[in-house]
């Protein structure tokens, strides 16, 4: 929708990893020109939908709510719904993340960064889950990723939600320093609780993250940090989703 602006690099990353991507504008859904269930993966890219003047992602979520049944069905079919940055904000507004207990209730918020400013920087995340999609590609890896957001600080409605998220192994990625020995600002650029960079739903197929793997698909898009990066973080990330999706339809 208007203000979404990371769609090109998202499109390219999907394409590079093997998908045949298509843009769906919210107007395409309204007019019936396109139908969510005709697709195998749904990616809600970053940006500033409707300007984020109210609360990041709130208006986009309100408009998508008209298609909540389709989204639920998509989810029930185990297909991947991925929200990056503003897309993560949209999924949390919709109650699709963390969605503990499958109640589709809004139970988290991506609050304004602790620094109270837009943060454009490179950081690292490590994989902290046993998610079926990312397990083989990400096990024990620390990866470089860029972030660029004002509202990315994960806060849950209450402690119980966080407990359930932990219980259900829903924390996918945590911000870390490069050697995995600690975090804190600026590695955790927004002050997220437990350094959370990305989470999934209980089933592991609805995924939200603030960092932008789609901006580092190739190694030449990364910051030179003295390590040889054979591939960009994005290639591992999107190939993992492609392989999972392919299996789903085999």
């Amino acid at each position: 929708m208007e203000g979404t602006n990371n769609e090109e690099e998202a499109y390219l990353s999907l394409q590079r990893s093997g998908f045949i991507p298509d843009y769906i504008h919210i107007f395409d859904l309204n007019s019936g020109r396109k139908n969510l269930l005709d697709y195998d993966v749904l990616l809600i890219p970053g940006g500033f939908s409707a300007g984020d003047y109210i609360r990041a992602g709130a208006i986009f979520a309100a408009r998508l709510r008209a298609y909540i049944r389709d989204l639920q069905k998509f989810n029930d079919l185990n297909r991947v719904i991925l929200g990056i940055c503003n897309g993560f904000q949209v999924l949390s507004e919709l109650g699709m993340l963390p969605d503990t207990g499958n109640k589709m209730e809004r139970s988290m918020v991506l609050a304004v960064n602790e620094s109270n400013r837009f943060e454009c920087r490179y950081t690292y995340f490590n994989y902290t889950s046993r998610n079926k999609i990312f397990e083989s590609a990400f096990r024990d890896r620390i990866m470089q990723v860029p972030v660029a957001h004002l509202e990315g600080r994960v806060l849950f409605k209450n402690e119980n939600i966080l407990d359930e998220v932990l219980q259900n192994d829903q924390i996918l990625f945590k911000y870390t320093n490069p050697d995995g020995t600690g975090s804190g600002y600026p590695w955790n650029p927004n002050g997220s609780v437990m350094d959370i960079a990305g989470i999934s739903n209980e089933n592991g197929n609805v995924i939200g993250l603030m960092p932008h793997p789609e901006r580092v698909y190739y190694n030449f898009q990364m910051m030179p940090d003295g390590h040889v990066h054979e591939k960009g973080t994005g290639e591992y990330f999107f190939k993992a989703i492609y392989n999972y999706t392919k299996k789903l339809f085999d």
């Binding site: 400013r117 454009c120 932008h212 901006r215 030449f220 030179p224």
Partner: peptide, 23 residues
């Protein structure tokens, strides 16, 4: 100043306004 600007959107910025070890 510059960290307030999104210099990585579109994914085509190869040498950023800053370079070197992240942060």
């Amino acid at each position: 100043i510059v960290r307030q600007y999104d210099f990585t959107v579109r994914g085509c910025t190869i040498t950023k306004p800053f370079t070197g070890f992240p942060n």
